[in-house]
Design a binder for these strands. Structure first.
Lengths: 339, 339
DNA sequence: CTGAAAGCGCTTACAG
DNA sequence: CTGAAAGCGCTTACAG
């Protein structure tokens, strides 16, 4: 590999001078600058970032975990993060988690070894190990689309799933539904939605009939669809009066639709089904899923912005941010049929 | 940050001794080892990988580009790569491309600065800039699911899309279809499939009626679906005798189905529609897409294996690998209805 | 405007 | 089994 010394001796100048060129130092003769520029090209010299990082004692790098590359949901978030970071001269390194807690731990450890300046994380679970590791890691951390436990001191950026669920219940109740069943997603986001559902059903004076299948995974798309099928079966069984199903993710909603179709129940005539999240496929004509949406790109941007403030010590404990949600009305929901 | 020197002076031993501990050097007194182990824990010391990389002159890191995080297709590949690399003690860094040629270039440059040991890439296009940059980059490179131009010397790992297309044509022709129309995907993979389609249609003595909409994007899922809709419109218009459509991706096939449904054409009774790639959603009951499948995880593993051989100089110009494909029969295809 | 020297946090022969 | 010293490829005051 060509080093800075090679460039310097090739030109008969000092290493410092070449370094000045690399760092756009103003104190540099224009002629020398051009000479070095040419030499760098000719020798195909590329400075080693490891070496620069060692002497600079900083990397200008931020790590972002991705729950699951399989999950298209997250890409807008990631793009928002990346855009904001790039504009500020930071490099983004992705850590693919594949829904594994161990890999989350590994990535944080990697971030420490790499001396990242900051970390944006999306753990599936806030295990004690993770919390402990994060605590001794001096790197600023913000959570994206996850809610760290109270007292952890970790700020988060998320959509306001609680209010989103309230909006959905209001809408369905407004349509005239009296028996609205909720299919629960067993994550912190799902719990927020469940809370909204329960609170709002109570306000409307309706029974909160929710369904949850413990131990069955519902994160990845195909798992969630299978989960939705099973849950729908349960709904029909336990709460036969149900006229509207509010699923805690679009994929779960699709699974519910699939089972309904098999049972010969037409949507929305026989049953309204709503989802959450506005997954890109939700708009396909087969589903036409009414759902809860929010600004994914902006979420990512905001998370990066918060982190940058922490890194620059402008704000060591920024406030968490909750984004507004809004309903997207499509054709999977309608007023209940009057029997 | 705690450094190796801090640990050494804390214990009153030399830096070399601590370094021996960090590198699992055999020449180390067990007592000293334990002493250092404790100190490292107490001081929360994490060695800086930048510093290690500088003195070791190697990073044991490989970069992998991802065409589009939005693209769930690719995740099995990535997982295969990661597993193989991990088993061999290498770290994987992802580069998200978002289908942008510029970002591909940026990532290669980043890899050079970072002194990655190898690169697995998935460019949308083999631009002259990319080829030139790759050429002067001394880092071993293999292409995954992409076909580098002849003479570039870059080995690739891909599925045998040509043969896959042949299999599909044989199957549809075997079903009795005489008018099989192909919706082309305008990428190197798509061109392979088109070649197979044409060759095989000729063998069966049938007219090759293919449809392509230039300039319309068909990579991301929703784009591909929109593309499939438009293409299906064209098919019906230009080749009204068509009884089977062979789409060059499942997403395109889904778009075709959507348009067919709007036109009141039932699948497969009125028209058979087949896809390619075995996208996870292709199996949903709404689509039941007959398609071409291949081992995605194994593809990734193989790519990583090839790269490792190159890195270790066991094989500087390994042969490219083409994986077998197989058909997955579902309910979107059937014999043509006899009028 | 440029160079010599010290330093960043490590690793690695070389002695002992 | 351990330490002192040189070195990895850079950057950054300090002189001049």
């Amino acid at each position: 590999m060509t080093t800075i010394r090679d460039v310097a001796s090739y030109l008969g100048v000092s290493v410092s001078t070449v370094s000045r060129y690399l760092n756009n130092h103003p104190d540099l003769n224009e002629e020398t600058r051009q000479k070095i520029e040419r030499a760098v090209k000719e020798l195909d010299y590329v400075p080693s970032s490891a070496a620069r990082n060692v002497s600079r004692l900083s990397t200008h790098t931020v790590g972002l975990t991705i729950p699951d590359i399989q999950d298209s949901y997250f890409s807008d978030n990631a793009y928002g993060v990346e855009t904001c970071l790039q504009q500020n001269g930071y490099t983004l390194i992705y850590g693919s988690l594949n829904r594994s807690a161990q890999r989350m731990l590994d990535f944080v450890q990697y971030a420490r070894e790499m001396r990242f300046d900051g970390l944006i994380i999306t753990p599936e679970e806030w295990t004690p190990e993770l919390l402990a590791l994060l605590k001794k890691t001096r790197i600023p951390v913000v959570a994206l689309r996850r809610r760290p436990p109270e007292g952890s001191g970790i700020p988060y950026v998320d959509a306001d799933h609680y209010t989103g669920a309230c909006q959905m219940v209001d809408y369905l109740a407004g349509l005239g539904h009296r028996h609205i069943c909720h299919i629960v997603l067993n994550t912190d986001i799902g719990r927020e939605r469940l809370r909204g559902y329960r609170d709002r059903m109570a306000v409307h004076g309706l029974d909160a009939d929710s369904v949850l299948i413990p131990g069955m995974p519902a994160n990845r798309a195909m798992d969630a669809i299978a989960y939705g099928r099973e849950a729908m079966k349960l709904v029909l069984d336990r709460y036969p009066k149900t006229t509207a199903v509010f699923a805690s993710s679009d994929q779960i909603g699709i699974g519910a639709m699939e089972y309904a179709a098999e049972e010969g129940i037409s949507v929305p005539a026989g049953l309204s089904i709503a989802g959450s999240g506005d997954f890109e496929f939700a708009s396909l004509s087969w589903f036409g899923m009414t759902t809860i949406a929010f600004e994914r790109y902006e979420l990512g941007q905001k998370a990066a912005g918060l982190l940058l403030n922490m890194i620059r010590k402008e704000d060591s404990h920024p406030k968490s941010v909750l984004f507004d949600t809004h309903l997207v009305f499509r054709k999977s929901t309608a007023a209940p049929s009057t029997l």
